[in-house]
Amino acid sequence: MDRLAATLTVLDYAAVAVFGATGALAAARRKHDIVTFGFFAAVTGVGGGTLRDLLIGAPVFWVARPQYLVVCLVAAAAVWILGPKRFRGSILTWLDAVGMAAYAVVGALKASSLGVPPFSAVVMGVLTATFGGVIRDVLAHEPSVLLQRELYVTPALAGAATFVVLGLMGTPTIPAGIAGFMVALCIRAGAILWKWSLPGFGGPVDADS
C-alpha cells in the first residue's frame, strides 16, 4: 500500500506540473501578466483532479496539500522566466499530451485505490485527464481540445482502460501504469502527427471525440 501511495503521489505531482505549464503557456500566448500566469497554471493543473475528488467523495487533494499549488506556480514562473521565445508553437500541444496521458492513469489509479468500481475508475481517469485542459481553453478563449478533429478523449479512455484492465488481470501497479501512459500518449501522438480521428456521425464533421 505504501508503494501504491508513493506511485500515485509521484504521478500526481508530475501531471500537475505538466498541466500547470500548459496553463502558463496559454497565458503566455495571450500576453497576460504574471498573476494570470499563476492562475492559469493552478486552475489547469488541479482542475481535473478536483473534479475527480468531488465526484468520488474524496477530500480534494490540493486543499490539505497546498504544495500541489506551489508546483503549479513554479511551472508558471519557469514559463515566465524562460520567455515565449524558448517555446515552439507545438510545445503546448505536446506537453498537454504528456499531461493527459499521465492524468488518465493517475485518475484511474486514485479511484481504484478508493474502491471505485472498474468502469467508474476508467471514467474518473478520463475526466481527470481532460477537464483541466477544457478549463484552460475556456479561460484563454482558445478552441476547446474536445472540439478538435484529432483524438483527445479517446487516448485518455484507452490509457485509463488499459491500466484498469491490467490491474484486474493482476499486473503490478507500476507496469500497468506505464502501459496505460504509453497507450494514451502513443494514440494522442498519432492524432497530433497524422491527424488520426474517429468517423463522425453522418460523414466528416468539424468536431471530434
Rank of each mutant, 00 (worst) to 15 (best):
A78C: 09
A26E: 09
G202M: 04
P199K: 02
G203P: 02
T22P: 08
A78H: 04
G83T: 06
L95F: 07
D208S: 15
P199F: 07
L168D: 05
K195M: 14
P84Q: 14
V116P: 00
V71E: 11
G133C: 09
A64V: 04
S209A: 12
V123R: 07
G190Y: 01
A104L: 02
L51N: 05
G49P: 11
F37L: 00
L139A: 13
T171S: 03
A111P: 01
V134N: 08
V60F: 01
A14W: 12
D2I: 15
I135Q: 10
P172H: 05
G177N: 05
A76T: 03
L95P: 09
L198D: 07
K110V: 13
T154F: 14
A21C: 14
F201L: 12
G83D: 00
L168K: 07
C186D: 05
F181G: 01
R149N: 13
F37G: 01
V63C: 05
L69Q: 06
E142F: 09
L55E: 06
H32G: 13
H141K: 12
D96H: 03
V205A: 14
F181C: 00
I174P: 14
G47M: 12
T22L: 09
F163S: 02
E150F: 12
L151Y: 09
Q67I: 09
P204G: 11
I178C: 06
T154Y: 10
L4M: 13
Q148V: 02
L109Y: 06
V116M: 02
A97C: 03
A75F: 12
T7A: 12
L168N: 05
L11V: 03
T173W: 07
R29I: 10
Y103C: 13
P175R: 08
S209H: 14
P66F: 02
G177S: 08
V16I: 15
A176Y: 02
G203D: 06
A77Y: 00
P117T: 05
D206T: 15
F131V: 11
K85C: 06
F131E: 03
V165Y: 05
F39L: 14
F37Q: 00
L82I: 12
V126M: 11
T128E: 02
A6V: 10
M1S: 13
V70I: 10
P143M: 05
L69R: 09
L69C: 10
G202D: 03
Y68G: 11
A184W: 00
I34Y: 13
I192T: 05
T93S: 12
R65Y: 08
V126E: 03
L95W: 02
F131C: 03
V145F: 09
S209E: 15
V60N: 03
L109W: 09
G47P: 08
A5G: 07
F39T: 11
K85V: 14
A158Y: 03
G38W: 04
F201C: 06
G83K: 10
A108R: 03
L82K: 11
A207Y: 14
L139N: 08
A26D: 08
S209I: 15
A78R: 05
G99N: 03
D2W: 14
G57S: 01
A64E: 10
A140F: 10
R30I: 08
F201A: 08
Y13R: 14
A64I: 02
G49A: 06
D208M: 14
A78Y: 09
V164W: 04
A104N: 00
V165I: 15
M1G: 15
L51M: 12
L11T: 00
V18C: 11
A58T: 05
